[in-house]
């Protein structure tokens, strides 16, 4: 495998808009995907993720704006399959053709050595099924074949639209590892999902869209982890006394079964108050707002 020199922004989306009839699928969307990093492209159903990826790949014509790889549109790339590998949502194959023959056709078009076919087939774990007709493949096997096709040209950029669809838990774990490995080798990886939990373990950056518009972008922590308002969870030998002390200190205390929730205070502040009230603390921890909650908040309908 070749190692890629870290480049600047590999993929650039600038002011991209796409309108289907009356539907504004994507509106003035701008973001970058960096080489050597995995970027999660997140948004609820119908947010415009697939539309953006298809515009990037020249499959649909943007109403306005540009989507380029190192400044070139996909159609302008000299050797597209060596530059960009893509797995789209409904990866489809001729049912009567075997996986190997499907990849042979793509290798012929892209002028890749025939040996690549076997390499990618075994890389995705389809070596044994390679000569069976795709008609008999399970959804996960088709997904793996789509990934094999994307990897065929050893591309610098990988675009994956909901690639874990149809994969079993080992398949999902394999996918995460594959994505991390590709980024570690210097490739730019953009992976879309409507489920944050599916990608939160494998992405460095996130781009969040909803209703065709950018909602946030940056590192995973900065976008979804950053929580200005602390919240502390505490349990003690005498919850009533502690609750009274905290309330006296100006906190609004909520009871959550045997624990107290103290919004607006850090564990250090809560600990100090407990000490002053001479209550033995059994457990004390910051409560992180879950990533999923932050994601939901970001993508929630905006009412103006």
């Amino acid at each position: 495998m070749r190692h890629h020199a870290p480049a600047m922004a590999t993929v650039e989306i600038r002011e991209l808009s796409k309108r289907f009839g009356k539907v504004d699928a994507v509106r003035h969307l701008s973001f970058d995907v960096q080489a050597g990093r995995v970027t999660g492209f997140l948004g609820p159903n119908g947010a415009g993720k697939s539309t953006t990826l298809r515009a990037l790949l020249g499959l649909i014509r943007p109403t306005a704006g540009t989507a380029t790889f190192d400044g070139k549109r996909y159609e302008e790339l000299e050797h597209p399959s060596a530059a960009v590998g893509a797995v789209l949502e409904d990866a489809s194959f001729h049912p009567g053709r075997s996986a190997r023959n499907h990849l042979r056709v793509l290798a012929t078009t892209g002028r890749h050595p025939a040996s690549r076919v076997d390499e990618v087939l075994s890389a995705v774990g389809l070596g044994d099924a390679a000569d069976r007709r795709v008609k008999g493949y399970s959804m996960g096997m088709k997904q793996r074949l789509g990934i094999a096709a994307a990897l065929l040209g050893d591309p610098e950029v990988l675009l994956l639209d909901e690639p874990t669809n149809g994969l079993d838990p080992p398949g999902i774990a394999w996918m995460r590892g594959m994505v991390r490995e590709q980024a570690a080798q210097g490739r730019a990886v953009l992976i879309s999902s409507h489920l944050l939990a599916e990608v939160s373990q494998s992405v460095d950056d996130v781009v969040v869209i909803a209703n065709g518009e950018l909602r946030a972008q940056g590192t995973l922590d900065a976008v979804l982890g950053g929580d200005d308002a602390p919240e502390t969870e505490v349990s003690s030998e005498d919850q009533d006394t502690l609750a009274a002390a905290l309330t006296a200190a100006g906190a609004t205390v909520q009871r959550d079964r045997d624990k107290l929730l103290v919004p607006g205070m850090t564990p250090a502040q809560v600990g100090a108050i407990a000490a002053k009230a001479q209550v033995t603390v059994l457990g004390l921890a910051p409560r992180a707002r879950s990533l999923e909650q932050a994601f939901m908040a970001l993508t929630a309908e905006r009412r103006s």
Binding site: L57, L59, A86, H94, L106
Partner: peptide, 18 residues
């Protein structure tokens, strides 16, 4: 027409964008 029926047209055009 089979390229549309089997939805292989996408992969065909990705491989040959012209």
């Amino acid at each position: 027409a089979g390229e549309w029926r089997h939805k292989t047209i996408t992969s065909t055009i990705l491989a040959a964008p012209d």
